[in-house]
């Protein structure tokens, strides 16, 4: 039981980071129907910038929490700038083009950002300075660290804040209006370009925070970290119904859980020795041995299995029916 609870805690932590990254995908898709594949790279740049700042400040003797906050405070504007320039330079000129063109551009932007990061931060795995002393608490045998609690709290806070922004402010109203119909929104006096740019910038800011959380949680950052993280978050967005904000949150958390539980238990389920009629036929089973078809190294595959299943059976995602409320 404590193993199960532990996997759930692991899944929730990873899932809430996916959810925050997924918001960046879903907001942009909601408003201009573009899958911004470069969003994963924005997350990576957030982690890298924070790494540089924290590394520089760590020996200065400031309180650790302040150092991490300053690191985040530097990463967020940098990522906002990256998000804005990306929209202004790469996507706005293609706004009227067929939807494949911006999609391919997004992949191009992603490669460019990745290699820029390679040039700036080298190909090495960077050890994220571990200045926050992480304490472990045990709940019914399952361990949860202060960092995990902080990640859960920050992610819930960010999601709540975003929901408020979208549903309670003028900017949010403008975003939803633009999502429904850009032409009509423009006629109503909404500056559509500004609203779209704002969407990118907000998504990038969320991505920056997610990057810092990811770096602190796993203790490392590398120029390639954005691609797999980005694809998983994208799968989460699709799972929840791309374009739908609560959907991205739900999708992220669910995906984290599926991954953790999947990786934790797939080895047990695919152990052919526990199936009586098969175990006789396999030599490795003799004397309590095991013959495992797929082990926990298949962890990363779950996200993509989920993606394929959703696209095949429910392309609009779990919460994706109310197409009108896309932003």
């Amino acid at each position: 039981m404590d193993t199960f609870l532990q996997q759930v805690i692991n899944g929730l932590t990873a899932g809430s980071v996916y959810a925050v990254v997924a918001l960046g995908y879903t907001m942009v898709y909601g408003i201009i129907q573009l899958i911004n594949f470069a969003h994963g790279e924005v997350v990576m740049i957030g982690a890298m910038v924070a790494f540089t700042v924290i590394n520089a400040l760590a020996p200065a003797g400031l309180p650790p929490l302040a150092v991490v906050l300053i690191g985040t405070a530097c990463a967020v504007p940098v990522c906002m700038l990256v998000g804005y320039s990306m929209e202004r330079l790469a996507y706005r000129p293609l706004r009227g083009a067929p939807r494949l063109a911006p999609l391919i551009t997004a992949i191009g932007v992603s490669i460019i950002l990745q290699h820029l990061a390679l040039m700036i931060w080298s190909r090495n795995v960077l050890a994220f300075p571990q200045i926050i002393a992480s304490r472990t608490y045990f709940i019914a045998g399952a361990a949860i660290t202060t960092v995990q609690i902080a990640i859960l709290a920050i992610c819930v806070g960010l999601m709540g804040g975003l929901a408020l922004l979208v549903y309670r402010t003028r900017l949010g109203t403008a975003m939803r209006a633009t999502a429904q119909n850009p032409q009509v929104a423009g006629l109503m006096g909404i500056d559509v370009n500004r609203v779209i740019a704002a969407t990118f910038v907000i998504g990038a800011a969320l991505g920056a925070v997610a990057g810092v959380l990811f770096g602190t949680y796993y203790g490392l950052a590398q120029y390639t970290m954005g691609s797999v993280l980005g694809l998983k978050a994208f799968s989460a967005a699709v799972l929840g119904g791309i374009g739908n904000i609560p959907g991205a949150m739900l999708g992220g958390v669910l995906l984290g859980l599926v991954e953790a539980l999947g990786a934790g238990y797939i080895g047990d389920f695919t152990d052919l020795c526990q199936y009586g009629w098969l175990s006789g036929a396999i030599d490795a089973c003799e004397g309590g041995g095991q013959f495992i078809l797929a082990g926990s190294n298949y962890q990363d595959v779950f996200a993509f299995i989920v993606l394929i299943l959703v696209l095949v059976f429910r392309p609009s995602g779990l919460l994706g029916e109310r197409v009108g409320e896309r932003a």
Partner: peptide
């Protein structure tokens, strides 16, 4: 114990380690 595997890019070992802890 039966071999557990990751990949050369794995950063999240928690699922494997949780299983082993048991």
């Amino acid at each position: 114990l039966p071999r557990e595997k990751g990949t050369d890019k794995t950063t999240d070992w928690k699922a494997v380690l949780t299983k082993l802890r048991g």
